[in-house]
Design a protein around this nucleic acid. Structure first.
Length: 224
DNA sequence: AAGCTTCTGCCTCCGAGACA
DNA sequence: TGTCTCGGAGGCAGAAGCTT
């Protein structure tokens, strides 16, 4: 069984036992390219991204230090990229795979089989964005009693950059209906969860659910 | 359960070739 | 020429599979 299946089972099991619906939106994998590149090439054509293409390069530089990125490639027209790094100079063997938009409504996501194939080759997952979508606006005021909440400009986007929860590196809350031009009300709460060891899954899903509960106003022992 | 072999992935060193 | 890219060989350690 590959590690993607194990991760999916782990999350699905949690969903079932806790009446919640967490979905993976983004998967990132730091990997060494040696002996893996040829297998990745069997999946399709990787197009080199023009470094002047700010739209894409900026997206990844938010995650990585700009000077560390030497080049980037995209698989066909999918939301799948890998970024080459020079962190291990002069070997140039480190790269980061990013598969995003796995949970969205305005566009077809990447076929699951392709994601599965990539994970089978790389045999690891470094971190994920786990998301929860809700049809009401999260209670921002209430959340800010528990966390240091930053608003992005004057937009419908908020961050918790420090959750004080192990492996729960960051929370992003945003108005998904507006971002993707969708009908109605739809907000997303997204957790960046790091996975130190894919073989021992112990992710802070209860903690994430607690944050959801606060934002919905359904936390039982809320005494404030 | 212990011993054995094979498999697999990892690392390091080497080196050629592309690109600007 | 310096930067970047990537494959091969050899060695090593842990995982996995098999037998007794």
């Amino acid at each position: 069984m590959n590690v993607l299946k194990e991760l999916e089972n782990y999350i699905n099991e949690f969903n079932k036992n806790n009446q919640i619906e967490f979905s993976i939106d983004t998967i990132r994998i730091d990997f060494k390219k040696q002996y893996k590149l040829s297998k990745l090439e069997e999946l399709g054509v990787w197009k080199k991204i023009d470094k002047k293409d700010k739209r894409i390069m900026d997206k990844l530089k938010r995650r990585l230090v700009a000077d560390e990125v030497t080049s980037a490639y995209q698989l066909e027209n999918y939301n799948i990229y890998f970024y080459n790094s020079n962190k291990d100079k002069p070997k140039y063997r480190i790269a980061t795979m990013v598969i995003f938009g796995l949970k969205q409504y305005h566009k077809e996501p990447v076929p699951h089989q392709i994601v599965s194939n990539i994970i089978s080759i790389l045999k690891n997952i470094s971190n994920i964005d786990l998301c929860f979508d809700m049809k009401i606006k999260p209670n921002i005021e209430r959340l800010s009693k528990y966390f240091d909440l930053q608003r992005y400009k004057l937009e419908d986007t908020y961050y918790i950059n420090n959750t004080n929860i192990l492996m729960l590196d960051k929370i992003t809350i945003y108005n998904k209906a507006i971002k993707n031009n969708l009908e109605g009300i739809l907000w997303r709460v997204e957790a960046l969860i790091s996975i130190p060891n894919i073989k021992y899954l112990a992710l802070p899903l209860f903690e994430f659910k607690e944050i959801i509960d606060i934002s919905k106003g359904t936390l039982e022992d809320d005494i404030k």
